[in-house]
Nucleic acid binder design. Structure first.
Length: 589
RNA sequence: GCGCCGGUGGUCUAGUGGUAGGACACGAGCCUUCCAAGCUCGUCGCCCGGGUUCAAAUCCCGGCCGGCGCACCA
């Protein structure tokens, strides 16, 4: 079929039609509808679950198998300290104040920061924020009504639960799958035999108690993420840019977004790196990889772009971030975030936990360095300083690292609680020694492509939806790539009589045994059955007719072109596989 | 969370203070030798709760769900 035969589907109609199709044909629908439904939760029906799984498998193939990374599966629930360390307990915790007059909700911390000299109000406890509102007599920024005595409500976007009985052990459903990887870094680095770089992926569920779920699968409260955490040595590791150097990217950098007449830049990965449009080579590498992957699973490249985050929207951990965005119903929707997270997460977990979130990096040549040490004689210092003796000891350890020269005189002075303490150098066993260091502990940096699988499913469905005209009749179909289509092939008897049905059942069994997802249909006329499969995106249909009984050949019909070819039954599995992988074409059969 | 609008079989939709019709889909049968044909029959519905009323799917209030706008979006 040529482009000219396609009837363009208006964007305002597109999402409605896809939503209707999704409900009717079992791609996705609101969950728990028998009990009134609950906002932000969707069930993937038989077609949708298969489509989603195929997209996940395509992701695994590209970002795990092809790249030589590993995949793990961590729990959805993790204990509170994990999220204290990750910053989600604070950073995810919004203080909301609602104006009693006009009903507008505001971030209470923003109200305070905007109208007072106070900075970082977000980190203050709620009673203090309320006190500040009273102290400065703050008003609603919209209508001017006084906000004094209006309660500040806390809203945390994480789902909270209790681990075990009682409330002594709070836990949270992870708001991103990433933390499940970071937390296990001490184990994972051993598995990687302490060698950088290595990548750890996870496909799993993440949860956010969104204030306002919207737009079908776009903003939901439970969703699937496919995340890759690529741990690298920022000093020495380089991405294999040459593999994607010629991939063309549509880029929308921050400065273009802020400019009056800003526009997209189209350039190759190589050019983007050379011209420093994408600052991180690693991010550029993944933008290139991902672009081809999106095309592979059915995202329309004419409705796709990479947009750089503006400085104001960068997450607390991100140094630079680009989003992959797809156009849906006239709006741009983020489907993947590519973030350079630096060493933020591993450093935090290193600080908050008792484990080492570093790797030992061996030098090419061992280094010999002079190291000064002290070993204070506590049998002297103890009686001398009494209760402060421990603090004096710590101060001495601290001092010898900072300033070994301080130990060259007869006495050395340290400060404890602001009070100077003088210690005889003779009592601290100061020594300088030569030590050989073979390496150092470093905290790896992290490059994170984070894919929203549900949004990608929704995008692929929407971009695949199309209409054309076949024999004067309008037809609606999903032009899904064969790799992700829920069903591989439909099998029909031309008539359900004269033994055609029995023969078709045999063909069905053969194809199932060849591992293909087959849908058998003998209801209604043949055209209706083709249309049914078109509507759920089945790429090929096989029809058993009277000739089949004579010569063991069947008709293979292709969805997009509706072209047909005659194929021997015994060659069917191989032919269909070749068609699916694109190594042959229906017109060549 | 606020505001506006909406909620009728599986889907889309008509309709009224006196308990509902259509289209498509679906099932059975007839017909049919490759693209949603036709005929017959059939299954399935007024979001939930409260109020007003002789009577509520219809009017009122609340809830839930959805769309849009605001806010939010690590």
């Amino acid at each position: 079929m040529s482009e000219d035969d396609t009837t363009a589907v208006p964007t305002d109609e597109e999402l409605e039609t896809v939503a209707e199709l999704s409900k009717r044909r079992g791609f996705f629908f609101p969950a728990s509808r028998a009990y009134g439904g609950v906002a932000g939760f969707y069930t993937y029906g038989p077609e949708g679950a298969a489509l989603k799984r195929n997209i996940e498998d395509a992701w695994r193939d590209r970002f795990v198998t092809q790249e030589g990374h590993m995949e793990i599966s961590a729990p959805d629930v993790m204990p509170e300290p994990v999220f204290e360390a990750s910053g989600h307990l604070d950073g995810f915790d919004d203080m909301i104040i609602e104006c009693p007059e006009c009903g507008t909700s505001h971030r209470a911390d923003h109200v305070v920061e905007d109208a007072t000299p106070v900075e970082e109000a977000e980190s203050l406890p709620i009673p203090e924020v309320e006190a500040l509102i009273e102290e400065y007599d703050l008003d609603c920024p919209v209508c001017g009504e006084s906000l004094i005595d209006v309660p500040v409500e806390e809203f945390n976007l994480m789902f909270e639960t209790n681990i075990g009985p009682g409330t002594s052990s709070p836990g949270y459903l992870r708001p991103e799958t990433a933390q499940g990887i970071f937390v296990e870094f001490p184990q994972l680095k051993q598995y990687a035999r302490n060698q950088l770089p290595f990548g750890v992926a996870q496909v799993g569920t993440a949860w956010r108690n969104e204030i306002s779920p919207r737009r079908a699968l776009v903003r939901v409260r439970e969703f699937t993420q496919a995340e890759l955490e690529h741990f690298i040595d920022p000093e020495t590791d380089e991405p294999p840019l040459e593999r994607v150097a010629d991939v063309e990217l549509t880029l929308y950098p921050a400065d273009e977004q802020e400019a009056e007449d800003g526009d997209y830049l189209t350039m190759t990965v190589r050019e983007a790196v050379e011209e420093n449009v994408v600052a991180s080579d690693w991010v550029a590498y993944y933008l290139g990889l991902a672009r081809d992957w999106y095309e592979r699973v059915g995202v329309d490249m004419d409705r796709f772009r990479y947009r750089q985050h503006l400085s104001g929207e960068l997450a607390h951990y991100a140094a630079d971030c680009w989003d992959a965005e797809a156009e849906l119903g006239g709006d741009w929707v983020e489907i993947t975030g590519f973030a350079y997270r630096s060493d933020y997460d591993l450093s935090k977990h290193g600080q908050y936990s008792d484990e080492e979130f570093t790797l030992f990096k061996q030098y090419d040549e061992p280094k010999t360095v002079e190291r000064a040490t002290v070993d204070p004689d506590m049998s002297v210092l103890g009686p001398e300083f009494g209760g402060d003796a421990g603090a004096v000891q710590d101060a001495l350890y601290d001092l010898v690292e900072r300033d070994p020269g301080a130990f060259e005189d007869d006495t050395v002075e340290v400060e404890v609680d602001g009070e100077p303490c003088t210690v005889d150098t003779a009592d601290v066993n100061f020594t300088r020694e030569e030590v050989t260091e073979s390496g150092e502990h470093i905290t790896p940096h992290v490059v994170e492509p984070s894919f929203g699988i549900g949004r990608i499913v929704y995008t692929v469905l929407t971009h695949a939806y199309d209409r054309d005209v076949v024999d004067g009749e309008e037809r609606a179909y999903l032009g899904l790539p064969a790799e992700v289509a829920p069903r591989a092939v439909g099998v029909f008897p031309l008539m359900d009589k004269d033994g055609l049905g029995e023969r078709a059942r045999e063909v069905e069994t053969d194809l199932r045994q060849a591992g293909l997802a087959v849908f058998y249909d003998d209801s209604g006329n043949i055209g209706r059955r083709y249309r049914r499969q078109d509507e759920v995106g089945t790429p090929y249909c096989v029809t058993v007719d009277y000739d089949t009984l004579e010569d063991d050949t069947v008709t293979v019909r292709e969805r997009d072109s509706t072209e047909q070819a005659r194929v021997a039954v015994e060659e069917l599995p191989a032919t269909l596989t070749a068609l699916r992988t694109g190594s042959t074409d229906i017109a060549d059969l």
